[in-house]
Design a protein around this nucleic acid. Structure first.
Lengths: 320, 320
DNA sequence: TTAAATTATGAAACGCATTTCAGAGCAAGA
DNA sequence: TCTTGCTCTGAAATGCGTTTCATAATTTAA
């Protein structure tokens, strides 16, 4: 395959001039420019991108870390990131970690090795001290409140929004409220957990372990929740479900079992995915696509660390 | 940042020796190896991957083209690809095309520019003559029957499986059968369309345009299908729905409207996603994760073109 | 008309690791 | 003792485009 040298020789110019043509620099006379273009055409010249990367020290590649690609929350987030990446001529390198730390570290190492220009971590398992070791190598963007950290972040105030959601249910007359969440740990989960504990204290209700359901990510997990709910002597009258799909699964399972919603059980979803609209699920809208967009912009603009709080909106429908 | 030369100098060896240490070549004496490792440690040496890429002419990056990341079909497929990529030390570059041809071409161009070693196209919009222009630059793997083409492929026989599904419904007493599908064009859609047309001929039923529903991808699209169904004078008694999520949406919408399944309307899904199990939807199992795995292996093994047919399995549940 | 500013062009350095080739040293086999 | 055949090492070539710097040729401004 022809390289820049071959083109230069054939066109009777220097490689510098060819490079100028390639990069649309001014200061190339019209006739030489044309000569170069003609030869490039003739040789079907393909610029070796790796040489460009080596030379420029950048790759126009941005890493995206997600625990699962196959989850509507991350699906929408990645969609937002992908769309904005396209606009800015960046490509994405996808890291599916399944929440395995070594896989997350692999992504960080790619940043370190300059194989990607920056890294967006949509959900993290690593501790901060691990991440801190890599911040010098490129911009890292988190999807959680990281205002006091050495990275950029786009986040929603999960403490506040969870508190508000609980308050909303409480105002609707619910006292016994439980919640379903994806995982126990993780910054966002902890914020929500704290909001929950504080809320219980505020309304003077005891903390009941059996009111909390973990690993609640997908539609199909709703069934298990309803089954466990049925086994409780004193079940909650309302459930905050941090995924609309899981909420939809719960609603579906309840219908099957004759549990009436919202009278027997009130359900409040999160995200405002399309399924929530169809199934008339009251939910807290989280603008995931917009967040993805913002994450990418922060990743590109690696110079300074910025922090964007995104606000959520309660969408009232028929499950509360 | 230190480079291989600095390390060599400091360790008192040649760059060749450092390179040997880096690549675990034999023929390096123990003392020199240790000296090199010590200096690398001291300098916190990071190998410049782009230089490696340039030198080796490969990137260990594989492109994955999907129309949408946020769709359970592609979600599972990508999950399979991602898992296998991990095992083989490859990383993925994600291209979300939204079925825009220029975006697909961008991916092909990255192959051409050797920025990725090979390309997996999970669903294509480009014509063959476009793809053919790029086959020389690296291995291209398709997720459709491409046995007579210059690429590798992993596919299921959509004609056969669609025919069998239709036959199954027919045997259950259905004569008026319609189907829902993601898009009109595309190799797989055409195969299914042909199977449908042939089936109608076989059972001597007229082809009714209004029995076919396009753009049926997500749960929420089920509602629209049911609405349109209700407006038909002579609605089908059974529906083949090429996505379990859409099928689930239809089932849900029918329940709301009091349409009884399977008596008033039989539904058969595709993929056997978890949601199908929970909602007791009869479906055709497509082993997407396994397919993803296979696609990646073919992408890596770029030497020869192979073609793998994956078989499907009917899962009988309660919607037919 | 002269000084200053533009435009145009190329040689060479730079980014960095891999790989080929040549050669030295040493041990095993004939 | 001589020949093979390993083991070990490094110089130099290779992959390829970008960028800096120096210089020449024109224009424009003064």
């Amino acid at each position: 395959m022809a390289n820049i040298k071959d083109i230069a020789k054939k066109a009777g110019v220097s490689v510098t001039t060819v490079s100028r043509v390639l990069n649309n620099h001014p200061y190339v006379s019209e006739d030489k420019r044309e000569a170069v273009l003609r030869v490039m055409e003739e040789f079907n010249y393909q610029r070796n991108i790796n040489a460009v990367h080596l030379s420029k020290g950048e790759t126009l590649l941005i890493g995206v870390v997600v625990p699962f690609t196959n989850h509507p929350y991350f699906g929408l987030l990645v969609e937002g990131i992908a769309n904005e990446a396209m606009k800015n001529n960046y490509k994405l390198v996808l890291f599916q970690t399944n929440y395995q730390e070594d896989r997350e570290i692999e992504a960080l190492k790619m940043l370190q090795h300059k194989q990607i220009d920056s890294l967006i971590i949509c959900s993290r398992i690593c501790e901060w001290d691990v991440i801190n070791q890599f911040t010098e190598y490129g911009s890292i963007v988190l999807c959680e409140d990281a205002r006091n950290r050495n990275v950029s972040s786009t986040f929603i105030d999960h403490y506040m929004s969870f508190s508000n959601a609980l308050e909303y249910l409480h105002n609707k007359g619910h006292q016994k409220i439980g919640y379903c969440i994806g995982r126990k740990t993780g910054a966002n989960s902890r914020q929500r957990g704290k909001a929950y504990a504080d809320f219980l204290k505020r309304i003077d209700e005891p903390y009941k372990e059996e009111y909390i359901f973990y690993e609640c990510l997908h539609f199909e997990h709703g069934e298990e929740v309803v089954r466990r709910l049925a086994s409780l002597d004193n079940p909650p009258s309302a459930l905050l479900v941090t995924s609309d799909f899981a909420a939809a699964g719960i609603v579906t399972s309840c219908r099957e079992k004759g549990i009436h919603i919202p009278d027997d059980l009130a359900i409040m979803g999160f995200d405002n995915q399309p399924i929530a609209k169809i199934m008339h699920i009251t939910t807290l809208e989280i603008p995931l696509v917009q967040m993805g967009r913002q994450l990418l912009l922060q990743a590109i603009d690696g110079k300074k660390h910025t922090h964007e709080e995104i606000s959520v909106k309660l969408i009232e429908r028929q499950t509360v």
